[in-house]
């Protein structure tokens, strides 16, 4: 009993002490389990539950949680009432999603009716771009660059991994919520909404930039279009509509430099306007 009481706070301290919440720094669950002093210490159960989440049931849980988080965001900014634009964004986004590895995702895309300049991905495949950002995109290459970055977050489960880790920490000290699926769902929606306000680790953003650049280029788009978008964001620096985006992402200049440094010869060869570039205007 003493061991058990001592270990849970120790685990929590360990998780909290992990300097970054990006997936690259997530503790390995198997090694954590092995270091546990005995398998029947309660901790093993929590680890077991977390492992279940990353197994077969995970895609459903991820989708349900993503929908709960999206519902909160839509409460602040609902999807734009323009079915022509919404259909168009779904066609561009769904085609980009064909280029990623995950096939257990129900992709849904939307433009949100807010002047704020931002784009977001929720666990399970809901991707949104704000009207403030969409209206500033010059062509389909730039729209594809923005959507591909968000698709990359979902493909690598960036948000979902952070939410699961935070859920583990919260549940370790809260037996009541642990035993109640309804309370757990609210907890996850809370964690997810706070994560949107706080942002991911910068390394996850840089990774989504690199992946997104590749995903857009694979689909036939201009691989350098994300740089054009970054230049626009840079020009909007200090604008109140970009406050959340700037507080949750590395600076556009750092992102441009990282993208350029990472670009391979084949990515560079794809830095030409696509045949579909002008199509964004056809969404009227």
């Amino acid at each position: 009993m003493k061991k058990r009481k001592l270990f849970v706070p120790l685990l929590m301290a360990h998780l909290i002490a992990v300097p970054s919440l990006a997936h690259a720094q997530l503790p390995d669950l198997d090694s954590l389990g092995k270091s546990a002093p005995g398998k029947d210490n309660g901790l093993g159960n929590i680890l077991g539950q977390l492992k279940d989440l990353t197994g077969g049931q995970s895609a459903k849980d991820e989708a349900r949680s993503g929908e709960a988080i999206a519902a909160r965001v839509f409460g602040a900014a609902a999807p734009l009432r323009n079915s022509a634009v919404q259909s168009y964004v779904n066609l561009v986004g769904r085609n980009l999603a064909r280029q990623v590895e995950r096939k257990d995702v129900q992709w849904r895309f939307a433009i949100l009716d807010t002047p704020s300049v931002n784009a977001m991905a929720f666990p399970g495949g809901i991707v949104v771009v704000t009207r403030g950002l969409y209206a500033r995109l010059a062509n389909e290459d730039e729209l594809a660059a923005v959507l591909a970055h968000e698709i990359a977050h979902v493909n690598r489960r960036h948000q979902w991994k952070v939410i699961q880790q935070q859920k583990l920490v919260a549940l370790a000290g809260d037996a009541v919520t642990r035993g109640d699926p309804g309370r757990s769902a609210i907890l996850v929606a809370d964690l997810g909404t706070k994560l949107i306000a706080r942002g991911l680790d910068k390394s996850a953003e840089f990774e989504a930039d690199r992946d997104g650049m590749v995903i857009a280029a694979r689909a036939g788009y201009d691989s350098s279009a994300l740089i054009s978008v970054m230049e626009k964001l840079k020009a909007l620096s200090g604008d109140a509509d970009t406050a959340l985006l700037f507080s949750t992402h590395p600076s556009p200049q750092d992102r441009i430099a990282a993208l350029t440094a990472a670009a391979s010869a084949e990515v560079e060869a794809a830095a030409v306007p696509s045949a579909a570039a002008a199509r964004i205007r056809a969404a009227h």
Binding site: L80, N118, T130, A189, A197
Partner: peptide
């Protein structure tokens, strides 16, 4: 810009808007 939809007008989406939003 594409001018398909206006960039301005309406409610913003920042951390405080998210915190107070109803699903």
């Amino acid at each position: 810009s594409n001018n398909v939809v206006s960039a301005s007008g309406g409610r913003g989406l920042d951390a405080s808007d998210l915190a107070s939003a109803q699903p």
